[in-house]
Structures are given as C-alpha cells and as structure tokens.
C-alpha cells in the first residue's frame, strides 16, 4: 500500500523532473561556472573581461537590444565608468531641426545595435542573421556550456563533409555548418586587467558576461531564495508541530 503510493508519486515527480531533458539531444562538456548552484554569483572580473570581448568582437555583428548601459553596474563597473562607456557611443536621435541626428549615449540607453534592422544585418552578413545576444544563454539548449563549447568548437571539416559557401565547420553546432567564422582566437583582445587572453579564457569570460546579461536578477533571486527556503522549512516544522498537537487527542 505504502510502497504503491510512493511509486505512483515518484513516477509523476520523476516525469516532471525528466520533462526538460526529453527535448535535449546533445550533451555538452560541463564547465565549472561561478554562477552555478544555489549560492553562485557572477565572477565580476571575468564578466568585465567578457564585456570587453563583447564590445571589441561580438558587437560588430550581434545586437544586445534588451540590455542598457546602466546594467553594466551589475558586473561591478562604477557609475562613472558606465557613463564613459555610454558616452563613447553615438546613438541616433532626432535633432532640434527634426532631422535624424546623433548624440552621445547615456547610461539609460540600450546597447547600440550594429545594424539598424534585421534586413541590414542580413545584407551585410551574407544572408545570415546574427542572433541577438540578450538572452542567448537562455535561448540555447545547454546554456553556458553550449556557448562555451561552440566558441571552442571550430575545426577543420572532416574530409567527407562538403562545406556550404561561406560556412564554417563547428563540431557543436547543429548540422556542423555555421555562418559565423571563429570569432575568438588566442590573443584576440588585450585584456585591460592584464589577464592572458588564451582562447579558453576568452570563451569563459564572454560566456560569463552573456550569462549575466541573460539573468541580471540571478544574484538577488538566489539570495532571496535561500531566505525563502529557510523560512518555509521553519514554517513546515512549526506547522507540523502544531498539527501534531491538535491531532494528539484524535483516536484512530
């Protein structure tokens, strides 16, 4: 009786637990990330280096339209540094004469997109649209591990694979042919903080930054989560004790 009950509930819960894994087809090598686990936080230095890579490399093709410059304070940049970063960008506006003009960016501006619209992006990119990177970590099966693997997954195509025009071989990309050429190389950027820019380091840093922009609320969320879970655990114990007391005089 008891085992049956447990089995039925376990089957249901097991199904719920398995559900997300059903659709997943590839397993990506797991990396240790600073933002994992119930107490995980973003490695600020890594995320700042990652922003440098985004700024110098990725943002030439990829937009990040959900993100504001002011969000950069979340990876530990000072308000003044954020202001300076924003001011280094010219954003389109309407001038006093009513004509399109440009002004210096403000922290309250969205990240400037490399192309004015998707059509322009495709036209400049050989027909391929570089996906927006605001939530790319959440929008790909495998998340951070996938992005990291992909960035390191460029290889010479096997002899029997016929590559499409302008396509690049990547062992982690679905179908293995990706329009994006290997974006990162050894020493692709010169880190402001003097960290050696190995390929792995670059991939790790930019992935950390991408994880931050996808989940800027994560640290607050987990902090609150720990408190809520502790509170509810306490409530469960107290309520159960009260229940035991109230039921103590019921004879079965």
């Amino acid at each position: 009786m008891q085992t049956l009950r447990i089995a039925a509930v376990a089957a249901m819960l097991g199904f719920v637990a398995l559900a997300p894994a059903l659709a997943q087809e590839m397993e990506y090598p797991h990396q240790n990330w600073s933002f994992e686990g119930p107490f995980g936080t973003y490695d600020r230095a890594s995320a700042q280096r990652g922003f440098q890579i985004y700024k110098e490399v990725c943002s030439n093709c990829h937009s990040m339209k959900q993100v504001y410059y002011r969000n950069l304070e979340g990876i530990g940049l000072s308000p003044d540094a954020v202001k300076a970063i924003a001011a280094s960008v010219d954003v389109p506006t309407i001038g006093d004469d009513g004509q399109p003009a440009e002004r210096k960016g403000l922290p309250s501006d969205h990240f400037k997109a490399p192309y004015p619209n998707d059509k322009a992006a495709r036209a400049a990119q050989n027909g391929a649209l570089p996906p927006d990177q605001s939530v790319i970590i959440k929008a790909r099966e495998g998340g951070a591990d996938y992005i990291y693997s992909l960035l390191l997954g460029y290889e010479a195509p096997p002899a029997d694979v016929k590559m499409g025009d302008g396509m690049n071989y990547n062992k982690w990309f679905t179908g293995h042919q990706i329009a994006m050429a290997a974006p990162l190389t050894e020493g692709r950027v010169e880190y402001a903080d003097g960290t050696k820019a190995t390929l792995e380091q670059e991939a790790r840093d930019v992935t950390t930054f991408l994880a931050f922009v996808a989940n800027p609320e994560m640290e607050e969320r987990k902090r609150m989560g720990v408190r809520v879970v502790l509170f509810l655990a306490f409530m469960t114990c107290v309520t159960y004790a009260v229940k035991r007391q109230i039921w103590s005089d019921v004879h079965h």
């Binding site: 409530m235 469960t236 309520t239």
Partner: peptide, 8 residues
C-alpha cells in the same frame, strides 16, 4: 492545520 502543513 493539516492543509497548512501540506501548503508549506
């Protein structure tokens, strides 16, 4: 009270 336990 029993429902409260379950709710927690």
């Amino acid at each position: 009270i029993k429902d409260s336990v379950g709710m927690c």
